[in-house]
Each structure stands twice: as structure tokens, then as C-alpha cells.
């Protein structure tokens, strides 16, 4: 197994608050790493540090063994990290096809070829009939699917999903779970963030639990499920 993504001692402070505190994580190709934690545990901040939106105060991020710390987000993206957002951030006034073309604009391939790929991807996400609509005309759940399609479009070796199931109805949820499993099977490293334990336990091969920016537990699903520190963080005192 090759290590696709790794962080060492990653730390981010906002004023006095340490949002991410010396986080070491590692995900291999084809592996799904679940990241759990209550609201404010630092999950999204961790993700933003990894993809370069925030500059970490300390520590490093490695993609396929190469250090990308401090690189601007577009450079990190081209190194092969795709992501989605907790609240969908689609390009609202662009067609679905154009949304999917954005991450591959630097590719040498012909426009027609890229459009064909985009249509295939939309087909896979069951959005093909809406391909000429503007993204803002989609429902919340469809926007989540669009984001996932956009994330997968450049075929990145690492994908990060931020709360993919939040506010999504059960049928769509099942559909998304299948797509995520497919993605991992295709050999990508998947970082899956959620505060919803059921879906995480189902999809992840390993899980880390964050609390107040720090890793409080790490291991297989069964280790985490029974971990007293995790239970305490979730149920509070």
C-alpha cells in the first residue's frame, strides 16, 4: 500500500483557540479514513489546512510523499486532492457541465473530449438530464451530487468529503454511499468527515476521532465504537 496523504503535527490556531492540535493522520490508496467528532472538534479546519485554504501554524502535509504545506489551494488541487463542502459550494450561475469543467480547465485535452467526460460523470450521478441547467436550480441533495461529480472529474488520487450526508434524504444517502464505496474501490484515498457515526462506521476501514482539535482515538471501527474517550466526547459530561 502506498501512503496517499499524510499530515505530521498539523496545527492551526485562531487567536487563542487551537482549532487543530498536532494532528498526525495517514491514508493509503484505496482506503477510507473516517474522521469523526462533534461540531467544533476541528474537522473542517483540518480539511481546510490540508487543501491549502488555511496556512497551518505548524506541521506539514504530504501528498504522495511530497510536502505541499503552504502551497496555495490551486496548486494543492493539482497535486491531486479533490473535496466537497459541508454546505454545497457549487458555481451557482454556471451550467452543470461547466461546473464539472472547472477542475480540468488546465488539461491539454480537447474541449469536446472533456465535455464528453463531464457528461459521463453526470450520467453516473444521475444528473444528466439537468446538464444545461444552472447549478442554483438544483435541490440541496442534487447540489451535493454535483459537488461529488466535480470532485471526481479530474480523477484525483485523494478525495475529501465534508459531511456528505448532512441534510440528504435516505434514498439519496444510499446512492451516495454506493458512490463513495466505488471511489475507494477505484483506488483513491478517501477522507470522510462526519459527525454521523453510522455512515462512518459503515464506510471506513479506519477512523480517527477528534475532540477540541486533538486526536483522542484512532483505530479500526470496532476499536472506536467501544472507546470510552469517544463516548465521553459525544455524550459529554
Amino acid at each position: 500500500m502506498t501512503v496517499a496523504i499524510e499530515t505530521r503535527g498539523l496545527t492551526k490556531r485562531f487567536g487563542g483557540l487551537v482549532a487543530v492540535d498536532k494532528v498526525d493522520l495517514r491514508a493509503d490508496a484505496g482506503e477510507t479514513l473516517g474522521i469523526i467528532g462533534v461540531n467544533g472538534a476541528g474537522k473542517t479546519t483540518l480539511m481546510n489546512c490540508i487543501c491549502g485554504l488555511y496556512r497551518p501554524d505548524d506541521g506539514d502535509v504530504f501528498v504522495a510523499g511530497e510536502r505541499v504545506t503552504g502551497q496555495p489551494p490551486h496548486v494543492v488541487a493539482h497535486r491531486g486532492i479533490g473535496r466537497t463542502f459541508q454546505i454545497p459550494r457549487v458555481f451557482r450561475k454556471m451550467s452543470l457541465i461547466d461546473n464539472l469543467l472547472v477542475p480540468v480547465l488546465d488539461r491539454k485535452a480537447h474541449d469536446a473530449e472533456l465535455i464528453e467526460q463531464a457528461e459521463a460523470m453526470l450520467e453516473r450521478m444521475q444528473l444528466i438530464d439537468l446538464r444545461h441547467n444552472h447549478a442554483e436550480e438544483l435541490s440541496g441533495g442534487q447540489q451535493k451530487l454535483l459537488e461529488m461529480a466535480r470532485m471526481l472529474m479530474p480523477d484525483p488520487p485523494i478525495v475529501m468529503l465534508d459531511e456528505p450526508f448532512a441534510g440528504v434524504h435516505p434514498v439519496l444517502c444510499k446512492f451516495m454511499i454506493d458512490r463513495i464505496e466505488e471511489t475507494a474501490r477505484a483506488g483513491k484515498a478517501v477522507l470522510l468527515i462526519s459527525h454521523d457515526l453510522t455512515s462512518i462506521y459503515r464506510l471506513s476501514s479506519r477512523v480517527i476521532a477528534l475532540n477540541q482539535g486533538r486526536i483522542i482515538a484512532e483505530g479500526g471501527v470496532d476499536d472506536i465504537r467501544g472507546n470510552p474517550a469517544v463516548i465521553e466526547a459525544y455524550l459529554g459530561t
Binding site: 485554504l53 469543467l101 472547472v102
Partner: peptide, 17 residues
């Protein structure tokens, strides 16, 4: 297309490369 994406959500566009 890049300009429009930037207009709609600059941070997201940047994270999409």
C-alpha cells in the same frame, strides 16, 4: 469559465485548481 467560477465562489474555484 474560470472567471465565472471565481465570481460565483472564489475559494471553491481555487480549491478546484
Amino acid at each position: 469559465k474560470a472567471l465565472r467560477a471565481t465570481r460565483d465562489d472564489a475559494d471553491a474555484a481555487e480549491m478546484m485548481g
